[in-house]
């Protein structure tokens, strides 16, 4: 892992060949967890289990990549879980309304519509935050309730399921299928992360995001359109949520009022574990991916081991996350 692509605007990495511990910390934490899991239960390192875990973390990973942009620019989005449920519900309703023809075209069109809804939801969050000058915490808490209520309304409290079983069969491989042995959701989150890393580290917009999050006033005096940059980060977030939904819908073929519940907290946790500061100014896309994986691995280890009673799993998960952060901090101080 070189550090060239993980540098931040505020604190450029020193030149040389040293591994940046700051960047490597989440990866080391993940490696420790993997060893721990293997010691507890040999089944943990079986290919089937590791592939399951890697595939399952796709939703949170993709959403968290978007959250990296929002948080790096000094914002916050609490609405992503509800937004995911709303987009999933709308997308399924669109597919159900498109008649009986089970074809790739129907799915492609639904995907485009889902991406559009995601971008629109993100744009709404962004505009209310920047034009209305309201704390993003409050704005997205509000839209969180709105999106959740909309999906409950669309589902009449029940579930929205794909009606056409043939169409489901056509769409199903998007979650369960593989290309060259790698599950498609994994390929999707790697691609999303690669594009996101390019945008954040190699483009002008990316540098503006970090500058705005680092110091808003300085950014404004430097001629950066702060409001527009902030708004666009929410659009990026919305599109990422929609991409996650594209992979989510084929898994169970349904959206319910409990879809995406608490995903926002998982996404934010993944971003922070990955080394992005909540106060903004830094963004670590690959670290975020690693953070999402750590969350999923912790849950997996808990179920695979017999150490903890089912009543205490939440407590142990919480403790592991805090310990992982403490280990990271101590490494950063040494760096």
């Amino acid at each position: 892992m070189t550090n060239a692509s993980e540098t931040t605007l505020a604190r450029p990495a020193r030149p040389g060949f040293r591994i940046d511990l700051r960047t490597a910390a989440p990866f080391i934490a993940l490696a420790v967890l993997l060893v721990f899991g293997a010691l507890l239960n040999p089944n943990f390192v079986s290919a089937a289990n590791l592939i399951n875990v890697l595939t399952r973390c796709a939703f949170i990973a993709i959403i968290a990549v978007g959250a990296t942009f929002v948080i790096a620019a000094g914002g916050l989005d609490l609405s992503v879980g509800s937004m995911a449920a709303f987009i999933a519900g709308s997308m399924i309703l669109v597919m159900n309304s498109m008649g009986s023809e089970a074809s790739v075209g129907v799915i492609a069109l639904s995907m485009v519509i889902a991406l559009g809804i995601g971008a629109a939801c993100g744009l709404a969050n962004g505009l209310v935050t920047t034009v209305g000058r309201i704390e993003p915490f409050i704005v997205t808490l509000g839209t969180m309730g709105i999106f959740r209520a909309l999906v409950i309304w669309l589902a009449e409290g029940g579930s929205i399921a794909m009606k056409d079983q043939e169409l489901r069969a056509v769409y199903r491989p998007v979650y369960f299928g593989t290309v060259a042995g790698i599950p498609i959701p994994v390929l999707v989150f790697l691609a999303v992360a690669a594009v996101a890393a390019f945008i954040l580290y190699k483009t002008r917009f990316g540098r503006h995001v970090l500058a705005v999050g680092s110091n808003e006033d300085v950014a404004r005096y430097s001629g950066i359109p702060v409001g527009r940059v902030r708004t666009l980060t929410y659009v990026v977030q919305g599109v990422c949520v929609a991409i996650a939904v594209l992979v989510y819908v084929p898994r169970l073929g349904a959206a319910t009022p409990t879809t995406g519940l608490l995903w926002e907290l998982q996404a934010i946790t993944a971003v922070v574990i990955g080394g992005t500061a909540l106060r903004g100014g830094t963004g670590r896309v690959w670290g975020t991916l690693c953070g999402a994986l750590i969350l999923e691995v912790v849950g997996n280890i808990m179920v695979l081991s017999d150490l903890v009673s089912e009543y205490l799993i939440g407590a142990v998960q919480g403790a592991i996350i805090i310990i992982a952060m403490l280990v990271q901090r101590s490494m950063m101080r040494r760096a």
């Binding site: 089937a48 289990n49 399951n52």
Partner: peptide
């Protein structure tokens, strides 16, 4: 063999069942 909470939620149940199958 095992009993776990899955919050009456299909997504959580999917994960728990995958883990049961691996275990």
């Amino acid at each position: 063999l095992d009993i776990q909470y899955a919050n009456w939620n299909s997504d959580d149940a999917f994960k728990v069942m995958q883990d049961f199958l691996a275990k």
